[in-house]
Write a protein that binds this DNA or RNA. Sequence first.
DNA 1: CGTCCAATGCCACTTTTTGCAACAAAGCCT
DNA 2: AGGCTTTGTTGCAAAAAGTGGCATTGGACG
Lengths: 260, 260
Amino acid sequence: MASQNSSRALAPRRHDEILKRLAADGSVGIAELAAFFDVSRETIRRDMKLLAERGQLDLVHGGARSFAATEAALPLRSQENAAGKAAIGRAAAALVEDGMVVFLDSGTSALEVANALIGKQNLTICTTSLVIALLLCRQPSMRVHILGGEIDPIEEAASGIDALEAIGRYRIDIAFLGAGGLTPDGTITDFTRSGAEQRAQMVTHAAKTYFLLDSSKFGRLTPMRIRNFERASGIIVDAPPPVPSGHGLKKKGMKVIVAG
Amino acid sequence: MASQNSSRALAPRRHDEILKRLAADGSVGIAELAAFFDVSRETIRRDMKLLAERGQLDLVHGGARSFAATEAALPLRSQENAAGKAAIGRAAAALVEDGMVVFLDSGTSALEVANALIGKQNLTICTTSLVIALLLCRQPSMRVHILGGEIDPIEEAASGIDALEAIGRYRIDIAFLGAGGLTPDGTITDFTRSGAEQRAQMVTHAAKTYFLLDSSKFGRLTPMRIRNFERASGIIVDAPPPVPSGHGLKKKGMKVIVAG
DNA sequence: CGTCCAATGCCACTTTTTGCAACAAAGCCT
DNA sequence: AGGCTTTGTTGCAAAAAGTGGCATTGGACG
């Protein structure tokens, strides 16, 4: 990391590091930084005061907190079954190792996965979702790619021919896809033709694919069957699916991961 | 590593090393360099002063820092010269008619244009900026396309080969581009090679192109010249540019629109 | 060979930055 | 509430860095 050797670090270097940590973690402690740079706490405090006057951070007792973090809580949309989706997010993130190329679909479940991925090292993220791209591109040590195309205002994500075609250009280690519903006989379905096609394409292109299905999707009937869904590695759910659905999935060789 | 042996290093050799370190670490200390070259601190200071006058580095107490690194993160930039940028946004929006296909670059000025476009009917928006896409896709009667590619975390926008290539697929009526600076002789420049290339591509593809330059950009020297910039229709500014710059632009047939 | 000149170092002096110490305020535990 | 620890503030002195003047040096060049 940044070196402070024998000579003291330049003030701007400290400022950069402070802002960097702030961007990464949302907050930093004074003692922590003073030790890192081997300077007194007053010095760090003075740095922070200066940055605060420039409006670059928010001073709090014992350190500073990122302005952006407090203001940027906006993209969180009303969520049904928020706890379940968060659990799914954590379970999904557990499958991701440092250095992987990860595809994240649009939708609230995928957003939870994105949240849970924060802190992993050296990931390459590929997504159609504007919100996910915005969230993760602010993380250091993550490279984010967005698939181009027309934005679907409901999903706030790229869709259409361009996105479909762009998928082919990537080599994905692991993909996490949303879906519209899970039928009683264990078929994964989608709301729209283009969504189903996009996800089908992804299943065939990624080394591993998991569908994210929170319990509100169980038994829901949506019109489009997702082609090739049975070639996915498995589904991640927040509660055991109804027996017939689960049975159908297992018969096709798919793993059912129940997040707790 | 570079040798300084018994004989003193030549001035140009020192300059190269200073710039090299700057490029590598973002900043260098005077004491550090003086020891390395076995010269007095004054000498290094004189070197740096010279390089600073050439616009190759930014002097700070105790050393120097790289200019490129000074480009502030997006949330901070949005605050500087906010009024000027808002005026530019309104002036730009006035050039847009219902039904047009509009390209919006990344950057805070373009974001202001996006804001000012709200309310127009039946626009098709094409952008690289995540924030702009998110903002406008929530507007009814706007269709938004995002160019795919790797996200530049500073701009929070797509860049790179994919974005460059995607530009060619659209037919744009009017494009609004940001830029890094406007030199005294009326050349429009950019911070990065890829940014300059992307904008050059856009200038040749759009029916009309306008550069957005708030007054903080006047006289600023950034490294890359934007190819073909003189084929743009004009620039939109929040204050009259310095006489020599303005003269240079008009000689090239570009309109200078001063927003008030 | 002598002179000139740019580059460098040295020095005295100013300005900025930093650390220290003492005290006030805020938080925390019982 | 009371006592203890951590954090914030402030004034001051020391250290580090910046500045400008001047002397020295080592070539370059006539």
